[in-house]
Design a protein around this nucleic acid. Structure first.
Lengths: 217, 217, 217, 217
DNA sequence: GATGAATGAGTCTTCATTCAT
DNA sequence: CATGAATGAAGACTCATTCAT
């Protein structure tokens, strides 16, 4: 099964970025600190100390503190998410998965795993989105075009097969996303459930969704 | 239909609090500023200026900036939410609503309305929860005891009537909450949908949930 | 033996002052707080709270914080010390004490006792003197005229009797004062010696001084 | 004659401290301001302005205002005083000074000179001791071990020679210290005597002490 | 490129003092 | 007289940012 790992991709981005080791340390450390205590509660001197560099170095490359945040968020927005989406879409071979519930189980497990593996970035992103609601539009713009048509195709295929209710794509997507989030968000923001079972959660969610999205009798 | 309005309750709390008009202004202004730009990005001098009081006045009553936050959040935690939950529970007369989907539609509309009317507090709360994950446990503790048994009773009644699948209460609740959130959260955090139709949203959500939570054939 | 108790005198001053009970509480509490933690480190709100009065009351009578200090120090300067000095001088009956060492022992014990009984005022005074060196001149002016002639007379009497070296009054006084202080100051500022024996200390000091101030052979 | 100059030692400590010129200016200026107007009455902005640096610079190095005080007091406690004591002890060659009064005159002049040359530090120290009585214990601990045995030896030598009364070391030391203080303290805290004659004062003090501490006939 | 000392605007907070009730 | 809410100037301290080395 495919497991997207944004961290790896992000780090590869780092290496390809031409940044020195110290600058990469700054970014890496900033990601963790921002995720753990928030952007506003993380000082640049804290970053410098944690990264083992001077305070000047932090600004040499990124100009401002916001610049560090951008350097973390932008590549996610520009490359990681699109790339992940593309890979994801490519890999989905709807033809092979004829069963809608099976499709859901696959997708959900994949996305939950993805999310859990990238808690840090998601946390930073989530915090930033609260402060900059326009970010979500940017995100939607990036992903939507890419995903919509493909997802729409898939949904239509399942609808044609009589496995999916005849609702608009957005509505169907909303319930899927909402259900996945009800599992993922508590897990990411607060580690409530220490022994969280991704497999079981995905199966349960898929089961519920398949029923709720089954076509009218 | 009953519409809980936390704002009214909160302001009543204010009036009963023995706070002077100026102190209430501080709290009121702080709520709006914290919601709009976040706790960390709101300075006490900004609050003082917006409330039309001196900076000393802000601290005379609330001791610290965190104290203001507590004065906003604590009553919500201590009174508003329990009170709202009680009222809500009391009002639900499961006997009258024999139809599960009707029950859901009622509950969902009520809660969406509640949430939309209290965007500010919820936003402040949401931001604070990210920084203080233990808050959610406090919240759960407050509400759970109150809600669980009653909700459990209702669910069991619908299960007995053959309108609700025989899943654990938590699982059923999770899907309901997740679905509601998928409507409410975007609306609160980013005013994406200018002309959001609560009635229609509630109906749709209830429809989907009733199908997903229908008993096995 | 005569024991001057400035505290009693001070409190009598208070009662005669026409101050209300609350105002007296303010002064009394201020004395203790100033002695314990210093003038600068004691806030007026702290005084108000400790005295059980409102913040306004503190200023009603004494106008400023410095005013409180003055209300504590001035009577000491204006009445207590002169009165104590007068009493002291009056009581000394040099004629009866023909022995210089006996005279010293008497005086020293009396003054040490006096000092220990009035640690608070002395501490406040000491702290204030460091900040306002001119205070000591005021103090000297008050006491000197009163004491000098009398002390001078006594010294001259002992010199005439061949029990006291023929040095200027100031020089003799300096050694006496210095020696007494070497016993008293550590005791007042830091309670070093828990079981301090005034009687023995006085006797020792007198013995030493009598030898050092004995006339040349 | 040996003249300890703490100021020089302190400044050497500064130079060895690796502090920049600006930081040294902060310390130097703070010493003078603290001595002149007290720690509590000196604001950090005042220090910054007087030192010709920004307020941030003051805190960059010393973290807190108390940190500045520590940076002034600690080296005195840790290095200057022990060093001065050692030098002092080393230099005393009791063998050469067979006369107890001569010994006293030497010692007293040396210490008075030392004190007068370091008025500032002593004033700051004195003020701080009133607020932190435990400091004196620290000071005693530092010096006592160093001094006691040596001083004890010297005293015993003079006692053996029949030049010093057979009293406990502490008692003898107390009178010497008390007498010296009676000359030094007024001079340091209030510049009462503009043309103070160290030589004469030392001689007088030594003369008095030698008589008071002469062995019993 | 990296350093870290220096900056100064800005933050939270305290406190002596005033004044309407 | 007494109260205590309100004030605002000042205080200690932080922090993003700059720049000479």
């Amino acid at each position: 099964m495919q497991v997207n790992n944004v961290e790896t991709l992000f780090q590869k981005t780092l290496q390809d970025s031409g940044l020195t080791a110290k600058q990469q340390a700054v970014l890496s450390v900033s990601l963790n600190l921002f995720a753990a205590q928030g952007f506003d509660r993380t000082s640049t001197s804290e970053i410098a100390k944690a990264a083992g560099v001077s305070e000047g170095t932090v600004f040499k490359q990124f100009k401002t503190k916001e610049g560090i945040l951008s350097a973390i968020i932008d590549p996610v927005l520009d490359h990681v998410i699109p790339m992940a989406a593309t890979e994801f879409m490519t890999e989905i071979d709807a033809a092979k998965i004829t069963d809608f519930e099976g499709f859901l189980a696959y997708v959900i497990e994949d996305r939950i795993t993805f999310a859990l593996e990238n808690q840090q970035q998601i946390k930073v992103f989530a915090q930033e989105i609260i402060r900059q609601p326009e970010l979500i539009q940017t995100l939607l713009d990036k992903v939507q075009g890419l995903v919509t048509s493909k997802v729409g195709d898939i949904f239509r295929k399942f609808q044609a097969k009589g496995q999916l209710v005849d609702w608009p794509v957005e509505r169907v997507a909303r319930y899927i996303v909402g259900t996945v989030i009800s599992y993922v968000l508590p897990q990411i923001l607060f580690q409530l459930d220490a022994n969280f079972d991704v497999k079981k959660a995905s199966h349960n969610a898929a089961q519920f969704l398949a029923r709720g999205l089954a076509p009218e009798k």
